[in-house]
């Protein structure tokens, strides 16, 4: 693997870490499996891209992407809590709707953002080459998101949110509306995912309606990978594990794609298959470990 491919995987790992933090928030904190993210990632890209093409500032367009993501999350939350649709189904419904909405926003299935001033141009420092600058910016964003999330999850609202995923009956008996917590949590999560989408669009120079496929599976794989490496004893560790998991996941993908297995050479289109297998392996390892321990005992 060349140095540039390595830096590329670090860059990807850091930008998608923002998405993984969002997935962590729903999947682990709220215990609300949310597939909306497959639609929110391209939503973030679409909103950012369209606004930039209309001459908006690249930072403000990222903010608007987050707002759009939060709105999408709000819809899923509304379907799940007020209309009592099963959480998984509610998120699939929103995700499906977002496909059409994303094309509406862009006016076509994809946008090229060539010659647009991105945040990377705005933050460019002559002394730092681009291949270092981009990962550094992504590191700052992912680290910032982790920090804000860490602080948030220790406020009263954050405690109520964590409790909602842990023991909803107890949380209701403490006077907190679990419905509201789900609405807030899912919105926040999708805002993060949309931010990741916007950042990806700006760094790659395009937005595509299909770029979100497999987001949730990649997110879950990263969360689970991270937890098995970093542990999940505290909130700080869990958010760190989301970032580490994302890095390791992207790195593993690059490695998998750069080797030939027998006559088979993996291509980027095999990515979803690899990820699916990876998630199954990650999910079953704890169970297998337990069984091994029993046998030894």
């Amino acid at each position: 693997m060349s140095f540039y491919t390595f830096m590329g995987s670090v860059e990807q790992g850091l930008v998608y870490a923002v998405m993984v933090l969002g997935v962590y928030l729903t999947f682990r904190v709220l215990d609300f499996p949310d597939l909306t993210v497959d639609g929110t990632l391209p939503l973030g890209a679409a909103v950012t891209g369209s606004l930039m093409l209309q001459g908006w500032d690249p930072f403000t367009s990222l903010g608007m992407a987050m707002l759009a993501g939060a709105l999408a999350g709000c819809v899923t939350g509304f379907l799940a809590t007020k209309l009592r649709i099963m959480s998984l189904l509610a998120s699939i419904i929103t995700m499906t709707a977002l496909y059409s909405i994303n094309i509406r926003i862009m006016g076509r299935p994809n946008l090229a953002l060539l010659n647009q001033t991105t945040i990377f141009d705005a933050l460019a420092v002559p002394a730092i080459p681009r291949f270092l600058l981009t990962p550094l910016i992504f590191l700052a964003v992912a680290g910032g998101c982790k920090l804000v999330l860490d602080l948030f999850l220790h406020t009263h609202l954050g405690l109520a949110l964590r409790g909602t995923g842990d023991n909803p009956q107890m949380i209701r008996s403490q006077g907190v509306s679990t419905d509201n917590m789900i609405l807030i949590g899912v919105s926040l999560s999708n805002a993060l995912v949309a931010l990741a989408g916007g950042l990806v669009a700006q760094s790659q120079g395009f937005a595509d309606v299909g770029m979100g496929i497999g987001t949730i599976v990649a997110g879950l794989a990263s969360v689970i990978l991270g937890e098995s490496l970093v542990g999940k004893e505290s909130v700080l560790r869990q958010t760190l594990s989301a970032i580490v998991g994302s890095l390791v996941y992207r790195f593993a993908i690059v490695v998998a794609l750069s080797y030939q297995v027998g006559f088979l050479r993996l291509t980027p289109s095999d990515l979803n298959l690899i990820t699916a297998v990876l998630v199954v392996v990650c999910l079953t390892i704890p169970m297998l470990r337990k069984r091994m321990r029993w046998k030894r005992a």
Binding site: H154, T155, H156, L157, G158, L159, Q174, G175, V176
Partner: peptide, 12 residues
């Protein structure tokens, strides 16, 4: 905090 709206104040 039972019965009060959970806000953004520090938890503990």
């Amino acid at each position: 905090n039972r019965g009060k709206k959970p806000g953004l104040r520090w938890g503990v």
